[in-house]
């Protein structure tokens, strides 16, 4: 427990010292949101959501897609320790693999959650997103999505040897899962084959939760299927990550 606390503390401090990546990750979706709101608004109105502005789809969609990219940072943090030659020093503390992984996961779950909340609030100010359903339900969707993605990237970290491999998977995943999961356009608007694949992506379940809260005045019960699937996936992915992770395996950072 002491090791987890120490690593969480130092990781948060490192992130605070170099926040520019977060600033850029925050700025990009803000540029994209206004471009699509009106078009998506018409599409939602055609779906039967008469008072929809489009922000109900576009803002959560950007949160889901860029959230996927941001989650890659937890992998970056682990590989960076190898690049800085500090990984062996962490290992010398005898902290077991689950504690080391938790030390990296916890700060990024918190930051990821904060990132999503900040984007939603900024989306409300920028393109008029309005919360119709339960704020607690929305929080549960955000939290479960953060946990699921961080666990997914930790599994990638456990499997892949280089940061470049993880980056490639994360970037591809953000686009493919985002597209299939309905982050760009509602799933109903996707080709049939894509609609069959959608439920196998975390983005789909996150978008389902967001739609329940922002479009359908949903409460906690309405988001439980989404939250349940995302948390269930978190447990499976984290379990696989811990099982597969080898603390003595050399990882390659850039160069």
């Amino acid at each position: 427990m002491d090791a987890i606390r120490a690593i969480v503390g130092v990781q948060l401090r490192i992130i605070r010292r170099d926040p520019w990546f977060l600033v850029i990750m925050f700025g990009m979706p803000l540029v994209i949101m206004p471009l699509f709101v009106d078009t998506i608004g018409l599409s939602l109105q055609a779906e039967g959501y008469g008072d929809a502005s489009g922000a109900e789809q576009v803002v959560p969609g950007q949160v889901v897609m860029f959230g996927f990219m941001l989650a890659g940072s937890v992998g970056f943090s682990v590989y960076r320790e190898h690049g800085w030659n500090t990984w062996d020093r962490l290992r010398a503390s005898a902290a077991p693999a689950p504690s080391l992984l938790a030390g990296f996961a916890i700060p990024w779950i918190l930051i990821h959650l904060l990132y999503q909340v900040t984007l939603l609030v900024t989306g409300a100010l920028l393109v008029g997103l309005r919360l119709k359903g339960s704020i607690i339900a929305e929080f549960l969707v955000l939290l479960s999505y953060s946990c699921c993605l961080i666990a997914f990237v930790l599994l990638l970290t456990a499997v892949f040897r280089t940061i470049n491999q993880v980056n490639a998977i994360v970037n591809l995943g953000a686009m493919v899962f985002g597209g299939l999961g309905g982050a760009f356009v509602p799933v109903d608007g996707l080709p049939k084959i894509a609609q069959y694949l959608s439920p196998f992506t975390p983005s789909f379940w996150a978008m389902e939760g967001h739609r329940a809260v922002f479009l359908e005045d949903g409460g906690i019960a309405d988001v439980l299927p989404s939250v349940g699937v995302l948390l269930g996936a978190t447990v499976v992915l984290a379990g696989l990550a811990v099982t597969r992770f080898r603390v003595d395996e050399t990882k390659e950072f850039f160069g």
Partner: peptide
């Protein structure tokens, strides 16, 4: 260890 390992940003 042989390679210098410290946190440069701290």
């Amino acid at each position: 260890p042989q390679e210098t390992g410290v946190y440069g940003v701290l």
